[in-house]
Amino acid sequence: MCAIGDTENAVVTNGQVHFYFLQDGSLRSGKLIKVHKQSSGMAYFAGNLYVATMPNLVKYSIDGKQDKLLYKDTEAGGQVTISRCAISREGQFIYVTGLDCPGLLVLDIFGNKLTFVKHLDMVSPRGLHVAPGGQVFLCGTGSSIVLQLDREHNKLVKVADGNDGLWSPQCVVLLNGKSLMIIGQEATNSILVLRVS
């Protein structure tokens, strides 16, 4: 799922992107566009959808026309290395990860590989979030950690782990204007809220 604007969201599932609008306090269904069947994650920036399609990252126009294959993982060998993506607030970087990826791939907005930042403790990354302040967070269901990418894109730093009550994190969000990190946990079907500095 990704936000398109203040009142519009898009959800990718089964080769389709469904658009929803918030209207009069209710969620209303909007248009639907077709994308690759194996699409599992997406991000929106400047009128375009960036869709993770295992092992590709594809750019679509908002009306569903495939614009460009931005990146293909030619070394995936059947592994899921591209299933989540996020874009930096200024649109300079695209962050990509997948269930079989032990870290975070950083691309420029044109799909050129800039770096791959690995973390030995990361297992099955699922949650990828760019906060309003530009911080990039990553978590995985196979590990009890939340990592933050440093500003230089050189390393992933642990910001939460099992000592904080974290277990099998699936998604992570840092609230705008708050020091609160919200983490959805798959194994416990619970939400953990942590105060971060």
Rank of each mutant, 00 (worst) to 15 (best):
M1H: 13
C2P: 14
C2N: 14
A3L: 11
I4A: 01
G5N: 12
T7Q: 13
T7W: 09
T7L: 11
A10N: 12
T13D: 14
N14I: 05
N14E: 15
G15W: 07
G15S: 10
V17S: 00
H18Q: 09
F19D: 00
F21E: 14
Q23N: 13
D24M: 04
D24L: 05
L27H: 02
R28Q: 13
I33M: 09
K34P: 09
V35A: 03
H36Y: 08
H36G: 11
K37L: 14
S39Q: 07
S39V: 07
S39L: 09
S39K: 09
G41F: 04
Y44D: 00
F45I: 08
N48F: 14
L49N: 03
Y50L: 09
T53L: 06
M54Y: 10
P55E: 01
N56G: 05
N56A: 06
Y60L: 03
I62R: 00
D63R: 06
G64I: 04
G64C: 07
K65W: 04
D67I: 12
K68N: 09
L69S: 10
L69P: 04
L69G: 04
L69N: 12
L69T: 15
L69F: 06
Y71R: 08
Y71H: 13
D73V: 03
D73H: 01
E75L: 07
G77T: 05
Q79Y: 11
Q79L: 14
V80T: 15
I82A: 04
S83V: 10
R84P: 01
C85Q: 00
A86I: 04
I87A: 03
R89Q: 14
E90K: 15
Q92K: 15
Q92Y: 12
F93D: 13
I94M: 08
Y95Q: 05
Y95P: 10
L99K: 08
D100Y: 08
C101L: 12
C101E: 15
G103V: 04
L104D: 09
L104S: 07
L104F: 12
I109L: 02
I109M: 03
F110T: 09
N112D: 02
N112I: 00
F116Y: 15
F116C: 10
K118R: 11
L120G: 14
D121E: 07
P125H: 02
R126P: 04
R126Q: 15
G127D: 13
G127F: 10
G127K: 13
V130E: 03
P132W: 00
Q135W: 04
Q135C: 03
F137Q: 05
F137M: 15
C139M: 03
C139T: 02
C139R: 01
T141S: 06
T141N: 02
G142S: 01
S143N: 09
S143A: 13
L147P: 05
Q148I: 05
Q148T: 05
L149R: 01
D150N: 15
D150H: 13
H153I: 01
K155P: 00
L156N: 06
A160V: 08
A160D: 07
D161E: 10
N163I: 06
N163W: 09
D164R: 05
G165R: 14
W167N: 10
S168E: 02
C171N: 11
V172T: 11
L174S: 13
L175Y: 05
L175D: 00
G177D: 10
G177R: 08
K178E: 15
S179L: 08
S179V: 00
L180I: 06
M181Q: 14
I182P: 03
G184C: 06
Q185S: 13
Q185R: 08
T188P: 04
N189F: 10
I191P: 03
R195K: 05
